[in-house]
């Protein structure tokens, strides 16, 4: 069995969790079977002394599946 990992940064106006969710949702447009997202970096964008956006970098991992030609 082989797994593949890709690195993405999700950006949310609300929370770290939402940023992770957005990254996973976007990756799921073209990848099926993502089973884990390891948070490897968090950055908060600040405007006027307030956090405006959370930028969370994750390693999304999915299993590489084999296709059989019938």
């Amino acid at each position: 069995m082989v797994e593949k990992t890709i690195r993405l940064t999700g950006i949310s106006a609300n929370s770290i969790e939402d940023a992770v969710q957005l990254a996973v949702a976007r990756a799921s447009v073209t990848i099926t079977g993502i089973h884990s997202a390891k948070v490897i970096g968090i950055e908060a964008e600040i405007e006027d002394k307030r956090v405006t956006r959370w930028k969370v970098t994750v390693n999304c991992t999915f299993r590489v599946t084999e296709s059989l030609h019938e």
């Binding site: 106006a13 957005l22 949702a25 976007r26 447009v29």
Partner: peptide, 12 residues
């Protein structure tokens, strides 16, 4: 995903 992205902007 697009809907999630929009709702994220509209949470608060």
């Amino acid at each position: 995903y697009r809907e999630e992205e929009m709702l994220d902007l509209l949470k608060h």
